[in-house]
Protein backbone atom coordinates (compact mmCIF):
# COMPACT_ATOMS: atom_id res chain seq x y z
CA UNK A 1 0.00 0.00 0.00
CA UNK A 2 1.30 3.48 -0.81
CA UNK A 3 1.88 5.95 1.99
CA UNK A 4 -0.84 8.21 0.67
CA UNK A 5 -3.41 5.41 0.75
CA UNK A 6 -2.32 4.34 4.24
CA UNK A 7 -2.78 7.90 5.51
CA UNK A 8 -6.23 8.13 3.89
CA UNK A 9 -7.24 4.86 5.51
CA UNK A 10 -5.99 5.95 8.96
CA UNK A 11 -7.77 9.30 8.66
CA UNK A 12 -10.98 7.47 7.70
CA UNK A 13 -10.66 5.20 10.72
CA UNK A 14 -9.66 7.76 13.35
CA UNK A 15 -11.49 10.86 12.19
CA UNK A 16 -10.47 13.97 10.31
CA UNK A 17 -9.53 16.18 13.25
CA UNK A 18 -6.51 17.35 15.20
CA UNK A 19 -7.38 15.03 18.13
CA UNK A 20 -6.77 12.07 15.81
CA UNK A 21 -3.22 13.13 14.97
CA UNK A 22 -1.51 10.84 17.49
CA UNK A 23 -3.36 7.62 16.50
CA UNK A 24 -2.78 8.44 12.83
CA UNK A 25 0.96 8.96 13.31
CA UNK A 26 1.13 5.82 15.48
CA UNK A 27 -0.62 3.87 12.74
CA UNK A 28 1.92 5.00 10.12
CA UNK A 29 4.88 4.06 12.34
CA UNK A 30 3.35 0.64 12.90
CA UNK A 31 3.23 -0.04 9.16
CA UNK A 32 6.25 1.87 7.82
CA UNK A 33 8.46 1.87 10.97
CA UNK A 34 8.99 5.64 10.77
CA UNK A 35 7.40 8.89 9.61
CA UNK A 36 8.75 9.89 6.23
CA UNK A 37 8.50 13.44 4.95
CA UNK A 38 5.96 12.18 2.44
CA UNK A 39 3.83 10.66 5.21
CA UNK A 40 3.88 13.81 7.33
CA UNK A 41 3.02 16.06 4.37
CA UNK A 42 0.17 13.79 3.45
CA UNK A 43 -1.19 13.84 7.04
CA UNK A 44 -0.92 17.63 7.08
CA UNK A 45 -2.92 17.83 3.86
CA UNK A 46 -5.62 15.42 5.04
CA UNK A 47 -6.08 17.11 8.43
CA UNK A 48 -5.67 20.64 7.07
CA UNK A 49 -2.73 21.38 9.36
CA UNK A 50 0.59 22.95 8.54
CA UNK A 51 3.40 20.47 7.88
CA UNK A 52 5.37 22.16 10.66
CA UNK A 53 2.53 21.42 13.08
CA UNK A 54 2.60 17.72 12.20
CA UNK A 55 6.39 17.59 12.42
CA UNK A 56 6.25 19.48 15.73
CA UNK A 57 4.06 16.79 17.28
CA UNK A 58 5.92 13.90 15.65
CA UNK A 59 9.36 15.06 16.73
CA UNK A 60 8.27 15.39 20.36
CA UNK A 61 7.63 11.69 20.93
CA UNK A 62 10.35 9.06 21.25
CA UNK A 63 8.20 6.35 19.63
CA UNK A 64 7.29 8.49 16.62
CA UNK A 65 10.55 8.17 14.71
CA UNK A 66 11.25 10.64 11.95
CA UNK A 67 14.33 8.80 10.68
CA UNK A 68 14.19 5.37 8.97
CA UNK A 69 14.14 2.41 11.37
CA UNK A 70 14.44 -1.32 10.89
CA UNK A 71 11.49 -3.69 10.73
CA UNK A 72 12.13 -4.65 14.35
CA UNK A 73 12.94 -1.85 16.76
CA UNK A 74 14.71 -3.05 19.89
CA UNK A 75 14.52 -0.79 22.94
CA UNK A 76 16.61 -1.84 25.91
CA UNK A 77 15.61 -0.26 29.22
CA UNK A 78 18.51 1.77 30.55
CA UNK A 79 17.06 3.05 33.82
CA UNK A 80 18.74 2.40 37.15
CA UNK A 81 17.31 -0.96 38.24
CA UNK A 82 17.89 -2.52 34.82
CA UNK A 83 21.34 -0.91 34.93
CA UNK A 84 21.97 -2.69 38.25
CA UNK A 85 20.73 -6.01 36.86
CA UNK A 86 23.08 -6.00 33.88
CA UNK A 87 21.68 -3.94 31.00
CA UNK A 88 25.24 -3.39 29.68
CA UNK A 89 25.72 -7.11 29.06
CA UNK A 90 22.41 -7.22 27.22
CA UNK A 91 23.30 -4.27 24.99
CA UNK A 92 26.71 -5.84 24.34
CA UNK A 93 25.12 -9.18 23.42
CA UNK A 94 22.75 -7.48 20.96
CA UNK A 95 25.53 -5.32 19.53
CA UNK A 96 27.76 -8.33 18.98
CA UNK A 97 25.02 -10.46 17.50
CA UNK A 98 23.67 -7.84 15.08
CA UNK A 99 26.96 -5.99 14.54
CA UNK A 100 25.38 -2.61 15.26
CA UNK A 101 25.78 -0.01 17.99
CA UNK A 102 23.00 1.74 19.91
CA UNK A 103 21.18 4.07 17.50
CA UNK A 104 22.10 2.07 14.40
CA UNK A 105 20.13 -0.12 11.98
CA UNK A 106 21.35 -3.35 10.39
CA UNK A 107 22.15 -3.31 6.65
CA UNK A 108 19.24 -5.61 5.84
CA UNK A 109 16.94 -3.12 7.66
CA UNK A 110 15.69 -5.88 9.93
CA UNK A 111 16.78 -4.44 13.28
CA UNK A 112 17.34 -1.08 14.95
CA UNK A 113 18.93 -0.96 18.40
CA UNK A 114 17.86 1.80 20.78
CA UNK A 115 17.77 2.39 24.52
CA UNK A 116 14.70 3.61 26.38
CA UNK A 117 13.87 5.14 29.71
CA UNK A 118 12.08 3.01 32.34
CA UNK A 119 9.84 0.45 30.65
CA UNK A 120 8.03 -0.45 33.88
CA UNK A 121 9.56 -3.88 34.59
CA UNK A 122 11.97 -2.92 37.38
CA UNK A 123 11.24 -6.11 39.33
CA UNK A 124 12.09 -8.24 36.29
CA UNK A 125 15.05 -6.45 34.72
CA UNK A 126 16.90 -6.34 32.49
CA UNK A 127 14.12 -5.89 29.97
CA UNK A 128 13.69 -4.93 26.32
CA UNK A 129 10.87 -4.22 23.92
CA UNK A 130 10.95 -5.50 20.37
CA UNK A 131 8.28 -3.44 18.62
CA UNK A 132 5.33 -3.87 21.03
CA UNK A 133 6.44 -7.18 22.56
CA UNK A 134 8.10 -7.18 25.96
CA UNK A 135 10.94 -9.49 27.05
CA UNK A 136 11.72 -9.36 30.78
CA UNK A 137 14.36 -11.17 32.88
CA UNK A 138 16.91 -11.26 30.08
CA UNK A 139 20.28 -12.93 30.05
CA UNK A 140 22.74 -12.45 27.17
CA UNK A 141 22.05 -16.02 25.95
CA UNK A 142 18.27 -15.60 26.14
CA UNK A 143 18.54 -12.28 24.29
CA UNK A 144 20.45 -13.83 21.38
CA UNK A 145 17.89 -16.65 21.19
CA UNK A 146 15.06 -14.11 20.89
CA UNK A 147 16.95 -12.19 18.19
CA UNK A 148 17.55 -15.39 16.24
CA UNK A 149 13.82 -16.06 16.26
CA UNK A 150 13.11 -12.58 14.85
CA UNK A 151 15.97 -12.97 12.37
CA UNK A 152 14.34 -16.05 10.82
CA UNK A 153 11.05 -14.25 10.18
CA UNK A 154 10.60 -12.77 6.75
Amino acid sequence: MTTELLVKELVEKNGRCRNSLMPILQGIVQKEHYLSEEAMLSVAKELDLSAADVYGTASFYTFLDTVPRGKNVIRVCKTITCHMKGREEIIEAISNHLKIKVGETTHDKKFTLLTANCLGWCHKGPVMLINDEVYPELTPAKTVEILEKYGKEQ
Binding site: T79, I80, T81, N117, C118, G120, W121, C122, H123
Partner: peptide, 11 residues
Protein backbone atom coordinates in the same frame (compact mmCIF):
# COMPACT_ATOMS: atom_id res chain seq x y z
CA UNK B 1 0.94 6.91 31.53
CA UNK B 2 2.94 5.27 34.29
CA UNK B 3 6.49 6.38 33.60
CA UNK B 4 8.14 7.12 36.93
CA UNK B 5 11.26 4.96 37.17
CA UNK B 6 10.67 2.14 39.62
CA UNK B 7 6.88 2.13 39.20
CA UNK B 8 5.08 -0.77 37.57
CA UNK B 9 1.93 -1.21 39.67
CA UNK B 10 -0.45 0.39 37.16
CA UNK B 11 0.62 -2.08 34.49
Amino acid sequence: DEGEPGTFKDR
